[in-house]
Computed example of a mutant assay.
Amino acid sequence: MTTHHLARIAIVGGGPGGLLCARILQRHGHAVTVHEREASAGARFQGGTLDMHADTGQEALRAAGLLDRVMALARPEGQELRLLDRSAAVLWHRLPAEGETSRPEIDRGLLRGLLLDSLAPGTVRWGEGVEEVVPLGDGPCRVRFTHGTTEDFDLVIGADGAWSRVRPALSDALPAYTGVTFVEACFDDCDIRHPGIARLVGQGTLSAKGGRRALMAQRNGDGSIRVYAAFRAAEDWHAGLDLDDTDAVRADLLQRYDGWDESLLDLLRHNDGGFVHRPLYALPVPHTWEHAPGVTLLGDAAHLMPPLGVGANLAMLDGADLARALVTEDSVDDAVRAYEAVMLPRSVENATFCAEGLARLIPDSETAEITFPYGYDAA
Results as ranks from 00 to 15, higher is better:
Thr2Lys: 13
His4Met: 04
His5Lys: 15
Arg8Thr: 08
Ala10Asn: 09
Gly13Trp: 03
Leu20Val: 03
Leu25Val: 08
Gly29Pro: 09
Val34Leu: 02
Ala39Thr: 15
Gly42Gln: 13
Gly42Glu: 14
Gly42Met: 00
Gly48Thr: 06
Thr49Arg: 12
Thr49His: 05
Met52Tyr: 07
Glu59Asn: 11
Glu59Arg: 15
Leu61Ala: 02
Leu66Pro: 06
His93Glu: 11
Pro104Lys: 07
Asp107Phe: 02
Arg112Tyr: 05
Val124Trp: 04
Gly129Phe: 04
Val133Ile: 04
Val133Pro: 05
Pro135Val: 00
Arg142Trp: 02
Arg144Asp: 03
Arg144Met: 01
Leu155Ser: 08
Ile157Phe: 02
Gly158Phe: 00
Ala159Ser: 11
Asp172Glu: 14
Tyr177Arg: 11
Thr178His: 09
Phe187Ile: 04
Cys190Ile: 04
Pro195His: 08
Ile197Ala: 03
Val201Met: 04
Thr205Tyr: 06
Arg213Gln: 15
Asp222Phe: 05
Gly223Ala: 05
Ser224Arg: 12
Ala233Lys: 10
Ala234Ile: 00
Asp236Pro: 08
Trp237Asp: 10
Asp242Ala: 11
Asp242Lys: 10
Val249Leu: 03
Gln255Leu: 02
Asp258Ile: 00
Leu267Phe: 07
Gly274Ala: 05
Arg278His: 13
Leu283Asp: 03
His287Ala: 11
His287Gln: 14
His291Gln: 10
Thr296Ser: 08
Thr296Gly: 05
Leu304Glu: 09
Met305Glu: 03
Leu308His: 12
Val310Gln: 14
Asp318Ile: 01
Gly319Thr: 05
Gly319Cys: 02
Ala320Tyr: 08
Ser331Phe: 02
Val336Gly: 08
Glu349His: 13
Pro373Thr: 02
Tyr376His: 14
Tyr376Glu: 10
Ala378Met: 05
